[in-house]
Design a protein around this nucleic acid. Sequence first.
DNA 1: ATCTACTGCGTATAACTTACGCAGTAGCGC
DNA 2: GCGCTACTGCGTAAGTTATACGCAGTAGAT
Lengths: 245, 245
Amino acid sequence: MDVNHVERETMTELPSYLAAAWGKQERPSRGPKPALSLDRIVAAGVALADAEGLAAVSMSRVAAEVGAKPMSLYRYVDSKDDLLVLMIDHAGGPAPEIDAPDWRAGLTEWSWAYLDQLRAHPWIMRVPIHRPPSTPKQLRWLESGLRVLKEFTSDHKMGTMLLLSGYVRSYAMLTADIQEANADPDEMMVDYGNMLRALVDAAEFPELAKVIAAGAFDHNPDEEPDADFVFGLERILDGVARIAG
Amino acid sequence: MDVNHVERETMTELPSYLAAAWGKQERPSRGPKPALSLDRIVAAGVALADAEGLAAVSMSRVAAEVGAKPMSLYRYVDSKDDLLVLMIDHAGGPAPEIDAPDWRAGLTEWSWAYLDQLRAHPWIMRVPIHRPPSTPKQLRWLESGLRVLKEFTSDHKMGTMLLLSGYVRSYAMLTADIQEANADPDEMMVDYGNMLRALVDAAEFPELAKVIAAGAFDHNPDEEPDADFVFGLERILDGVARIAG
DNA sequence: ATCTACTGCGTATAACTTACGCAGTAGCGC
DNA sequence: GCGCTACTGCGTAAGTTATACGCAGTAGAT
């Protein structure tokens, strides 16, 4: 039987991509020295996705980028899915060191940092496969958030971080969707607000029509960007404040 | 030039998938009667995704399901991406008719309905391409939410729905991720909590280790399911209450 | 010196989406 | 009734894709 290191790790009952991400790979002693390294492969994937989008990340392209042939990558990675998971972890910057006077300021800082992070690597939001957070950088971000919630109970800490990270992620996705639709020259969605005006009939959508008429969907250059983000964030923080101390 | 109805609709400056979703397709008068209909195709795609997952949805499979050959579908749909967008719209059930005494009860009802909806069609959360909400059912759900927020300003209405829908979506995704990882027999993630215990070192992750030790990640069968969902939801509603009336 | 676990990767398979163009059809104008 | 023309279904084929299998070469262990 051909037992390569990937299968060996599986036997330790930890998914191989996690063993890799946590650096729990025992370097094999026999055999030729690897010409590649998992880090180089994953880094090449991230660079490719940053530069040309997720669609450009194929096994052949990544292999070419590190000067190897496609099949060689499978000595380092079980599947493309695993590579994508590792890329997500790798792309995550270092968790923010938050130095804020209170939990409210701390969570605000954390949220903006997370939003920036997602926007720096928009393809992360397009990866169709996901796993519950269990890679090192993901957990370091979580730790960094929990750290500012010292005075809360464990359940409240986790619930709050779940709420906050979910909100940031979904806000980032929505704005990325809008931006992408606007950028696409095929689509006439150059103006999301006006497109809705064309589609939404006031008889069938009375409330929505009112909101559209009020300009809530129009891009207002005077307004601070991400004003909607701030609104939601403040609502969350107000809600959390009610259970604080 | 071969001008089929898809391209004709593009010329009206509306993306063809939106024209289709909003039923703004002028039926062509000439030519043979279509053997298929867009509705049948999209419905077949939804049924396939419900039964066998998103991966089973290929143009050939969908075509076979409606008794046609693959290339015939392209007379009704520009691309597979468009088909997926239409499937998302089609899968959405009717927007909830909310009959609640106040906005707080109304939004609670809306949130649970939305969560149920996503869980009834988990593949929706795996579709890699997304567009800003502009299909009929998506907007009807939005309208139904806005309707219970009568006493708020337009900006506050939209901001609240943005916050709420984002939270529900991300919570649904997280629980789907966990469930999928648990179901996968390859992965030893049969117990997310214990897996974290194995990975997380208390020296590097002091706060996270405490939370894990407190059992926040363990599945507790006594506890009501989705207790975390309720926690986040209540925080949001508390936060919204601060700007009400 | 031999064994053995390992590496890179050539070959091949079985998917996949979709461009192109052809043959047949049905309503319209005359 | 007779084309004309816009349309439909779809056969063919091209171009990608992930990845299973197995072989030849390598280098530490014994």
